[in-house]
């Protein structure tokens, strides 16, 4: 009897693990971001709550949980309520085929990378719903900007992932990691180009500086989540940082060898690589100004997409030449 339910229990357990990992990881990343920004700006950052302010995120979460949930008058109730879920659920789902270790994976889908790329694009729907539902002009502009941005950066992102797929010959995340056993992908010149393109377009995908156009503080106040408060706002925040983790983790598995490392545990290597990418993105965030909407679009379509296409062509040629 128990044996019959065991697979489901196992799945449930995995789900709980993933959810708690996401919560802890988002909190840690928020703390890390505050610390990195403080370091860059010759400040100290949070110091009071816990050693070096490490419990600050927990205090913030408690505060956000206790805050009033304000619904703006004239809001489109249904979209307004649903939007945070549309933003939060896809990144959680993407953990389904995130290879933490050789066996440490929820399900090694044979279309893994495709699944991750497609499921995370659903976020844009949530963002647009938030922008529309808030009945706020700034939010609306933010939502529209976000839709345009994410759709245009999806193209170079997938094209750079395509290069990896061609090189590895498989769509499965584990397969891609295994294919890197002789040599990590970013060490090959054509894949290094793909890596750079991936990083740039992934930064745009998760709305981070220099592509934080949908939430541009100095222009649109807070963009699509201007009107959200309390836990709903926290959900946007968690989604943002989970997305950040996902793009870094995908970058780690596609280009940096995933969980491959000289010594065990393999999950440690995976997390280390992901966090190195995250730290790099944070470092960029606190250095660069924001680009303008049209500049960002022309960069995506006139520079990134042609280069990515060329890269696909060159990779194909190299593969054919190799036989």
């Amino acid at each position: 009897m128990i044996a019959h339910y065991l697979p489901y229990l196992k799945l449930l357990l995995k789900g709980v693990c993933v959810l708690s990992f996401i919560a802890v990881s988002a909190m840690f990343l928020i703390w890390l971001e505050r610390k990195v920004s403080a370091k860059v700006q010759n400040r100290l950052g949070p110091m009071i709550t816990g050693p070096h302010g490490s419990l600050q995120s927990i205090a913030d979460t408690v505060k956000l949980l206790l805050k009033e949930n304000i619904v703006p008058s004239g809001a489109d109730r249904l979209t307004w309520w649903l939007a945070p879920f549309f933003v939060t659920v896809p990144p959680v789902t993407a953990f389904l085929c995130m290879p933490f270790g050789p066996t440490f994976i929820v399900r090694d889908l044979n279309v893994g990378i495709l699944f991750i790329c497609s499921i995370t694009s659903i976020c844009v729907l949530g963002i647009f719903m938030a922008g529309w539902g808030s009945n706020n002009k700034y939010s609306l502009l933010g939502g529209m900007r976000s839709a345009a941005q994410i759709i245009s950066y999806e193209v170079p992102l997938l094209l750079s992932a395509l290069v990896v797929i061609m090189e590895a010959g498989t769509l499965s995340m584990q397969g891609i990691v295994h294919a890197q056993e002789p040599c990590w992908f970013f060490l090959k010149p054509n894949l290094f180009v793909a890596f750079v393109i991936y990083l740039i377009s992934a930064t745009a995908e998760v709305n981070r500086v220099p592509f934080d156009i949908p939430e541009a503080e100095s222009e649109l106040v807070a963009g699509y989540h201007t009107e959200y408060s309390g836990m709903k706002f926290a959900m946007f925040f968690v989604a943002e940082y989970t997305n950040l983790f996902i793009i870094s983790a995908v970058a780690a598995s596609l280009f940096l060898g995933g969980w491959l490392g000289p010594i065990r545990p393999s999950a440690g290597w995976f997390l280390l690589k992901a966090y190195v990418v995250i730290a790099f993105l944070m470092w960029i965030r606190w250095t660069l100004p924001r680009v303008r909407m049209d500049q960002m679009m022309s960069f995506a379509w006139k520079v990134l997409t042609p280069v990515a296409l060329l890269n696909v062509l060159v990779t194909g040629w190299l593969l054919v030449a190799k036989g």
Partner: peptide, 9 residues
């Protein structure tokens, strides 16, 4: 610079 989005640094 802050207005141009170079946030706080």
């Amino acid at each position: 610079a802050q207005d141009l989005g170079a946030f706080a640094t």
